[in-house]
């Protein structure tokens, strides 16, 4: 699985690079059709997570995707890809619908973490994440989660409990940012680079831990060098795994999902 000689810190930087494709870049390339649907029917439409319905060759999917902006204006609109509780509640609303209509769920993970703000706490950030974890563990439809950039903390996991967890080669997935890790453990956030090396946050590391199911190879020069090629790789994997998972009966699917996390 080891691809090349990039350090963990190199990958942190690649995962965060502003030129890296965002969820919508992939969604537009992967699916023949995509319609975005808005709102949590409770508080608002949080644009840091995009939800909608999509299809490939007549096969339908529910899509839940953390969306970073590609420039400052977009980033402000998207809250830099940091969801508030309503984003998770919107996600859950669409995931429950996917269960009702027996559509597989595809999630794209790309966030620095759940937003740490006053409003987020007032509206129950912890409760929103917890509920997603619990509900996703038993949703009666296949779930495929794909880490495309930065997957950080509970904010990533909140849309990441699935039957298959895939990571792009240069994406990262961690319990918190390397800066946060260095700051908490070594009281020095400037040691982020060293932290990245010990945290085991690369796709290869997490594959070797058995936390993820597959590392998706990126095109030469990284995902941003060829979005179409990267999208195609993801598309093939979505089709492959959706097909594999849809052959399982629901009890088997849920048992396997439970066991997957049970042994971690």
């Amino acid at each position: 699985m080891k691809s090349n000689n990039l350090t963990a810190w190199d990958r942190v930087n690649l995962a965060r690079d502003s030129s890296r494709p965002t969820a919508l870049d992939y969604i537009n390339n992967i699916f023949d059709f995509f319609i975005e649907l808005h709102g949590d029917r409770c508080f608002k439409d949080d644009k840091s997570i995009v939800c909608g319905l999509a299809s490939i060759n007549g096969k339908n999917f529910t899509v839940v995707a953390e969306q970073k902006g590609r420039n400052t204006k977009e980033n402000i609109e998207r809250n830099f890809g940091m969801p508030n509780p309503e984003a998770y509640r919107k996600s859950l609303r669409f995931m429950k619908q996917a269960e009702k209509f027996k559509r597989p769920i595809i999630t794209f993970i790309d966030t620095k973490g759940a937003y740490p703000g006053i409003g987020a706490e007032e509206r129950g950030q912890g409760e929103a994440i917890a509920k997603n974890l619990m509900e996703m563990s038993s949703l009666k439809t296949p779930i495929i989660a794909i880490v495309i950039g930065e997957g950080s903390s509970g904010g990533a996991l909140a849309i990441g409990v699935g039957d298959k967890i895939l990571m792009l080669e240069n994406s990262i997935y961690s319990v918190l940012s390397p800066e946060g890790y260095a700051s908490i453990l070594w009281k020095d956030s400037s040691k982020a680079k060293e932290a990245a090396e010990v945290m085991k946050l690369t796709a290869d590391d997490l594959y070797s831990f058995g936390i993820i199911d597959e590392v998706l190879k990126e095109p030469k020069g990284g995902a941003n060098a060829n979005v179409k090629e990267m999208s195609n790789t993801i598309k093939q994997k979505i089709l492959e795994y959706a097909d594999e998972l849809s052959k399982l009966d629901i009890d088997e699917l849920l048992n396997k999902r439970y066991e997957k996390y049970r042994k971690m």
Binding site: V161, Y173, F209, I211, M264
Partner: peptide, 19 residues
């Protein structure tokens, strides 16, 4: 934090059990 991603996964594990 000392257990990295393994500790994050305990959130999913315990929540699944509550389900």
């Amino acid at each position: 934090m000392q257990e990295g991603m393994i500790s994050l996964m305990q959130m999913a594990k315990t929540s699944a059990a509550i389900s």
